[in-house]
Amino acid sequence: MYDVIIIGAGPAGITASLYTQRGNLKTLVLYNEKSGLEKAEHIENYYGFENGISGEALYKIGIEQAKNIGVDVIKEEVTKVENNIDYFKIVTPRGEYTSKVLILSTGNKKNKPKIKGIEKFEGKGVSYCTICDGFFFRNRSISVIGSGNYAVSETNELINIANDITILTNGEKAPEIRADNVNIDTKKIEEIIGENKVEGVKFKDGTEIQTDGIFIAQGVAGSADFAKKLGIITNKDNIVVNANMETNVKGIFACGDCTGGLLQVSKAVYEGAKAGLEAIKYIRKNNK
């Protein structure tokens, strides 16, 4: 078991890991691919680089810096997080990891697909939380919108509950998944249809399918997706934290762009440092 698992290897997550590792906590950082930082072509407003630096270079240096002091930094996409009260379980397509503390630093990613009807039917058949709402669709026909590892993970959560599941990739390539009651449809979606609740999906080509419920699992899961399942309070999909970077869930901290506010490297670094230090205190205090 790790003391600390950090999801995200941007400035926030890596900085947190520098503190926790140096505080003698066994630390794992999981990251996936793109960070906000890599998209920043040239950063000129961050301390210490006389000619500025590209976001991509800064991202890579950060990861090497953490590895050099002994942090395990592994490239694996997190698809699921479970709170088992005295430890957290973090699931990737390759396996599982456990930790005493979890730090979310997945950046400023908003996953909600722009499809007509999604907002209208939230709570009326459109759901973001398989573990909260799967039950409502026992033995029914449901759909999952998404096409990546996250969509596959969410489909697996629902496989034993629903009668049948259709993965709607909305024009993206079909993921690999084999199960008797799972179909995949790659057509582009026009809108979600229904009277008072979800009744079906209409595609751009004019065809329709019937469905009783739709679970959203587009792209790579971000902190807001994890938050919904862990019971972390969010505000406009930003994680709500106090001045110690603590969320409302014991043992879970968040830092960087995922907490909203100023979306800049310097703020991510500060919050990462604070989250790391508070994680150390938390583990010492709870004698974990």
Partner: peptide, 25 residues
């Protein structure tokens, strides 16, 4: 029509006035 929990509903004069789906502060 609860299909998602937690859901919080505010009732005024016996009528469902406002619905909050999912965890709120």
């Amino acid at each position: 029509g609860i299909m998602s929990i937690p859901t919080v509903i505010i009732f005024k004069e016996g009528k469902a006035e406002k619905t909050f789906v999912g965890l709120r502060d």
